[in-house]
């Protein structure tokens, strides 16, 4: 009698641990932000973002400080919404550039902090942007030469 009770308890704990692992995995893989850090959103307009995707990292000096949450078309330019960790202040003259990891890797957004006295608040706009460098057109220029 006592032995059977122990077995049920062990099974119960085992199943519970399984469910916890599953929950952890789905939160990690699904990039769900439940107990994450507080963030605020700013946006930037780029003439070209290449193959930048929502979820791409936003970095300052190579350190991840947020991610791209939305990319949409605005007057034939790309409007990119970035969510940045609270506590990382962005100056009015911060520069956002679309960069590539390695030579042909994934795209990400790099922020270079500026020196202006005012900061961009939530919902503000990063005015200084650099579009993605189009590797194809660079190769094209070298391969076929300039006219």
């Amino acid at each position: 009698m006592k032995k059977a009770f122990d077995l049920e308890l062990v099974v119960g704990i085992f199943v519970l641990a399984g469910i916890l692992c599953l929950a952890y995995l789905s939160i990690r893989l699904g990039d769900v932000n439940i107990l994450g850090k507080d963030t605020y959103e700013v946006y930037a307009i780029f003439s070209d973002v290449g193959d930048l995707r929502a979820g791409a990292p936003v970095v300052i000096a190579g350190v991840r400080v947020g991610k791209v949450t939305d990319i949409s078309l605005d007057n034939y330019r790309a409007r990119v919404v970035l969510s940045v960790e609270e506590g990382v202040a962005l100056q009015e003259d911060v520069i956002a550039s679309v960069k590539t990891q390695g030579l042909i890797g994934e795209k990400y957004v790099e922020l270079t902090p500026g020196g202006a006295p005012e900061n961009i608040g939530a919902g503000g706009r990063i005015r200084q942007t650099e579009p993605a460098v189009d590797l194809h057109s660079l190769i094209r220029k070298y391969a076929f030469g300039e006219i």
Binding site: T112, P113, G114, G115
Partner: peptide
Amino acid sequence: ARGAMGPEWR
């Protein structure tokens, strides 16, 4: 110049 100096400007 402020833009070129960045955060150190402050």
